[in-house]
């Protein structure tokens, strides 16, 4: 994975140029794990996205980023409100943000559940940068 596929790269570049005047799409990250919150924004930045991080679902809901978020990268197991609970919460409030779930758990059963509830993808930690990019792109183009 030393280099991105040529087409993807050009696409990214294109997007970057396109959004130069416009704001880059906001990708919000909700995870109680600090490592994730530290590492993901840099990678997302490399991909050309704006990124905000939140340590809990409650913190995200209380922020002013909910409406601006184009894609939500959401941890499943968290103290307090869990990822799926936040998914339900957003659904109920009709704020349908495309969600990419990430989880450290190896429980396979959780993936179809969240996909069925409308999630774009469910990635098991640790995941590759391309898998993340594909998922985020899918989310951004889901509408």
């Amino acid at each position: 994975m030393d280099t991105l596929p040529r087409e993807a790269h050009s696409c990214v570049m294109e997007l970057c140029q396109e959004r130069r005047v416009v704001e880059r799409p906001l990708v919000s990250v909700v995870d109680d794990d600090e490592s994730v919150r530290e590492s993901l924004p840099d990678l997302l930045g490399e991909f050309g996205f704006a990124a905000r991080t939140f340590s809990s679902a409650e913190e995200f809901l209380a922020s002013d980023c909910v409406d601006q978020t184009r894609c939500l990268i959401l941890d499943i197991a968290m103290p307090g409100m869990s990822g799926p609970q936040l998914q339900q919460e957003l659904k109920l409030s009709r704020r349908e943000i495309p969600i990419v779930f990430i989880t450290a758990s190896r429980e396979e059963a959780v993936r179809p559940q969240v996909l069925e509830q409308g999630a774009i993808e469910c990635l098991f930690k640790p995941f590759s940068d391309t898998a993340l990019l594909d998922a985020v792109n899918s989310a951004l183009h889901s509408k």
Binding site: S35, S39, E46, A77, R106, K125, P126
Partner: peptide, 21 residues
């Protein structure tokens, strides 16, 4: 798995970012 995967996830992401940079 959760406990181990959390830092692993960080490692992989950081390494990927590093390469890109």
């Amino acid at each position: 798995a959760h406990e181990v995967n959390q830092p692993l996830s960080g490692i992989v992401t950081n390494a990927s970012t590093c390469l890109r940079m």
